[in-house]
């Protein structure tokens, strides 16, 4: 089975998008083994934003098959994010 996908929608080099990318790197370093990661720049790929129905950037989408979840914002509070994604336990598994 493939690892679940975390996809981050950003808008070019805006400040909040840059911060979100940095924060995603931190998350990746914590849970890399259990997730795959993808970054979509909505300025370059508006059709993907359309398909996903993205309004705000940055948005981190957890493409869970049964319970997809989204976090809007620069995902600065990493602890809270892991909680929301329901993956707090994975940190300890590292």
């Amino acid at each position: 089975m493939n690892a679940p996908l975390l996809r981050l929608y950003i808008a070019g080099k805006s400040l909040s998008s840059q911060r979100a990318e940095q924060n995603l790197d931190k998350i990746r370093s914590l849970v890399a083994a259990h997730f795959t990661f993808e970054i979509v720049d909505v300025l370059e790929r508006p059709e993907l934003a359309e398909k996903a129905g993205i309004l705000a950037t940055p948005t981190l989408a957890y493409e869970h098959t049964e319970r997809p979840r989204r976090i809007v914002g620069d995902i600065s509070d990493i602890k809270k994010i892991l909680e929301f994604l329901g993956i707090e336990g994975k940190e300890e598994m590292q």
Binding site: S16, T57, R70, G73
Partner: peptide, 14 residues
């Protein structure tokens, strides 16, 4: 789907 807001954002997506 579930959605929460954490931190700063804009509507560049829209």
């Amino acid at each position: 789907n579930d959605e929460i807001v954490i931190g700063d954002f804009d509507l560049a997506g829209l």
